[in-house]
């Protein structure tokens, strides 16, 4: 068992292994992602019943909620990858982290943007300091910090390590930030309509939501793998196997 884990660790530490295996996963992830998103979106947008309170405008949750969930997972993933990279000195984990940061920003921005669009018909204004939207905004700021740090440090290896430290510190603080924002929100704005947190959600609304969430995760994985592969090819550009791969493509 131990030996097996050790072998796995060495394999996973190898960029070539990651490149090859992720290449095998890609078509599946793309296929499943497109299928789930397609079914989920068509079902959610066209067939699910309208909300008794919000009418049709609620349908944006099929984008908003998956984006928000993936945005949070992406930060967790960065911190976990950072921890793995620092503890076991795994280069690949650093690269995954680095690849994930801009994706996180985009997905968080999507969640905020769709939240604002949803806010207009629901609250009559583009932006409300709702607990969830505020948390997302702070998450965006946390991403900004990591990316700004990456950009500021010229030495890649040090930038990776610095980014890892910052995202680990960030992820430890996220529950505290979330808690304090929610607490702050109940203090200042009792009884607003909270997004997504409906006491009961009809199954015909809920199932497409689950489908789009899983689909969004697949797309996220595809995006992350592509960016990581890019990073691998660039870092390992001097090695033989990369030159073979690129020769093959060119």
């Amino acid at each position: 068992m131990w030996n097996y884990l050790k072998r796995l660790y060495h394999k996973m530490g190898s960029p070539k292994w990651f490149y090859d295996i992720s290449n095998k996963w890609l078509p599946w992830l793309i296929g499943v992602g497109c299928l789930l998103m397609g079914v989920g979106l068509v079902w959610g947008l066209a067939y699910a019943p309208a909300d008794y309170l919000q009418g049709n405008s609620f349908r944006i949750i099929y984008i908003h909620v998956p984006a928000a969930i993936v945005a949070q997972s992406c930060y967790m993933l960065m911190a976990v990858a950072g921890l793995v990279a620092m503890v076991w000195r795994m280069k690949i984990a650093f690269w995954v982290m680095r690849a994930a940061a801009p994706i996180g920003v985009s997905v968080t921005a999507i969640a905020l943007f769709t939240g604002a669009i949803w806010g207009k018909p629901t609250w009559g204004t583009w932006w409300v300091w709702d607990a969830r939207l505020t948390s997302m905004l702070i998450l965006l700021f946390l991403y900004f910090g990591v990316i700004a740090l990456y950009n500021a440090i010229e030495d890649d290896e040090l930038a990776n390590k610095a980014g890892a430290i910052l995202s680990i510190v960030g992820v430890i603080n996220i529950p505290i930030i979330k808690y304090s924002v929610e607490w702050w929100n109940t203090l200042h704005q009792p009884a607003t309509i909270t997004l997504t947190k409906k006491p009961t959600m009809a199954p015909e609304m809920f199932i497409p939501l689950v489908l789009t969430i899983v689909g969004f995760y697949c797309w996220f994985a595809v995006w992350l793998i592509l960016r990581t592969q890019n990073e691998i090819l660039w870092r390992e550009r001097r090695t033989k196997w990369v030159q073979q791969v690129t020769n093959h493509v060119l």
């Binding site: 910090g145 700004a148 740090l149 500021a152 610095a162 430290i165 910052l166 510190v169 603080n173 808690y179």
Partner: peptide
């Protein structure tokens, strides 16, 4: 600590730290 050796660290520090100050 993260920004100490950087020439352009001045503007960076608030970006890193302010979100953590929110609670």
């Amino acid at each position: 600590g993260l920004t100490v050796g950087l020439k352009k660290g001045g503007m960076l520090l608030p970006l890193l730290i302010l979100p953590l100050y929110i609670p």
